[in-house]
Design a protein around this nucleic acid. Structure first.
Lengths: 331, 331
DNA sequence: CTGAAAGCGCTAACAC
DNA sequence: GTGTTAGCGCTTTCAG
């Protein structure tokens, strides 16, 4: 079943049918109706492969992700999805389970499969970037790890996030402030830590303790337990993300140490789930919607050739003060 | 840049080039190498729109999801992704934010965009099913809400899951067993409850209390708090999912009620996160990998026309006994 | 083993 | 306004 069936059924020519499909204004209303009726009756839909072939574009934007199951991704993706829909594009997601070295096997990475690609929080992105450049596929980076001055990307100022979180604890009178970071392969992790160190330095303080761990509840739990065991518990903790923070609070509570009464805790990411526990977590929210939106703009500009030069946009995160932080308890 | 450039560069004909692209064995090795070399040098990749057009298939399977951010989805998707890759297909995800009524606006829902579609945990799937049938797009349902005897689908036996969870509590000596279900629009929710009621009945017991709520930590929290306030706390609780269970445990702990010492709690879904808290949650694990795998098989059979008749497969979930359940405390 | 020719379904000039 | 003609880039008969 194809356009020719519609041609027969409607009695008009193939060109007119095509025009109706593409909403061309230069079709007499009577004929348009005839065509529409025929399409309706035949339950016809144009073949998108043929359209893509002749137009040289697909109307689809691909997004490569390495993971689901995280509020941050969820929000970025949904924002991009909506924004693209507004512009007449579709978003398609592809999971790229990091397969170590070797050629990337991502089906999106083919010119003409998609009009452009968004790489969300890529891990070891170099190979992807190189491949996309080589294939001349328009793409941008969201929340990437490395600096690429010749690729457009949107980043969150994790340094500032770390700084603000720590500054908040300092403002509450804390001086024994520890930090538990995530996996150090992430730039975001080292940036957050850098912000933490800087905020302390600006207040003439030094890190009370720094641990690195996974972005998981259990690693936060373990770190806190260790401090308790060694009797080196700080009065405030800046956790690298909300899961770590949750683990910390959990461990403290098990030992009868109250948050925020005895110890203040700040998280990062504003995971949806984390905000449902009590005390509600003070955390740093990343501007996911903005990231998605700006990323889409950047990519579409590039696709439409309106791009001046690659841009790196750094967005500010926002400290959300809730209930897991409080003034330092007077001795 | 297209196949003709490769033709020129290699000195062979377009047909031979095409054969090399498609790994046809009927090409002399010398010529194959020439073509390969030319493709390599030109950095050539066949145009997939053209291939799809002429072949009448895309090699892509679409999956429509309504939500990310859940271990269950994550596992199903990854399983399907891998299985499809093994069979030479690619998986592409599309987020379908439930837009109420109206025509579905899912770009996947176009014949020739994809070779087939998997609907994962669809909400109000009727309209989708109707549309896909109308468009004659091969599809299957995973974890669907309604019974469709003319569509292949893979379900989890939520009744059994509820039964097993409850039976476990009964075996531990509990008789005051309450249930907190999720949103009742989900078939899974009512099935789990049915299993709960049946297990009780088989032991000559009756439901101690039944609440319905969202699949969230806070609703579990609220339900437990309410019971405590009204002094109607059961000795065991079967929660509709892990988040609810987490909320319950959180509320109990706030009141100094220990799990599992004072109250036993069972969850559902084995959310990755939930297993990191202590006590580690006893829960019901759904066979996500199997679902993904069987779903893919069913879909590919349908696509290849090897399908006898639509099949509904019901898989058994598995009770994972961990630390949030214990024998009824002797008074 | 190789190539010439036809055509997948559609759009974009260009005439009328 | 409308239709004729030529491809988009590729695969697939069917001869040779």
């Amino acid at each position: 079943m194809n356009i020719h069936d519609v041609v027969k059924k409607s009695g008009l020519s193939i060109v007119t049918v095509s025009r109706v499909i593409n909403n061309s204004p230069t079709v007499r209303e009577v004929n348009r109706q005839k065509v529409l009726k025929a399409m309706e009756e035949l339950n016809y839909q144009p073949n998108s492969a043929a359209q893509s072939l002749v137009r040289g574009k697909t109307g689809i934007i691909g997004m490569s992700i390495t993971n689901l199951n995280d509020s941050f991704y969820d929000r970025v993706i949904k924002a991009a999805n909506r924004k693209l829909a507004d512009q007449g594009y579709f978003l398609t997601l592809s999971i790229s389970e990091h397969e170590g070295e070797g050629e990337t096997n991502n089906f999106l990475f083919q010119r003409d499969r998609v009009d452009g690609i968004i790489l969300l929080s890529p891990i070891e992105e170099e190979q992807y970037v190189a491949e996309l450049k080589k294939k001349k596929i328009p793409f941008i980076l969201l929340d990437n790890q490395y600096e690429h001055d010749d690729v457009s990307s949107v980043l969150v100022d994790n340094f500032q996030g770390g700084y603000d979180a720590t500054r908040h604890l300092i403002d509450l009178g804390h001086t024994k402030i520890a930090h538990i970071g995530g996996p150090t392969i992430f730039l975001s992790v080292t940036e957050r830590k850098r912000g933490y160190v800087q905020a302390l330095a600006d207040a003439a303080l030094t890190p009370f303790a720094i641990e690195y761990s996974g972005f998981t509840v259990s690693s936060g739990y373990d770190a806190a337990k260790k401090w308790i065991r060694e009797d080196t518990l700080p009065t405030a903790i800046f956790a690298g993300d909300d899961f770590i923070a949750l683990g910390v609070i959990h461990a403290l509570r098990e030992e009868g140490i109250m948050v925020p009464h005895d110890v203040s805790v700040v998280g990062f990411d504003d995971q949806k789930l984390a905000s449902e526990f009590f005390p509600r977590l003070t955390t740093v929210r990343q501007p996911e919607a903005q990231m998605g939106s700006i990323g889409v703009d950047l990519l579409l500009e590039q696709i439409n050739g309106q791009m001046e030069a690659p841009t790196v946009t750094k967005l500010s995160p926002q400290l959300l003060v809730r209930e897991s932080t409080a003034y330092l308890k007077q001795p």
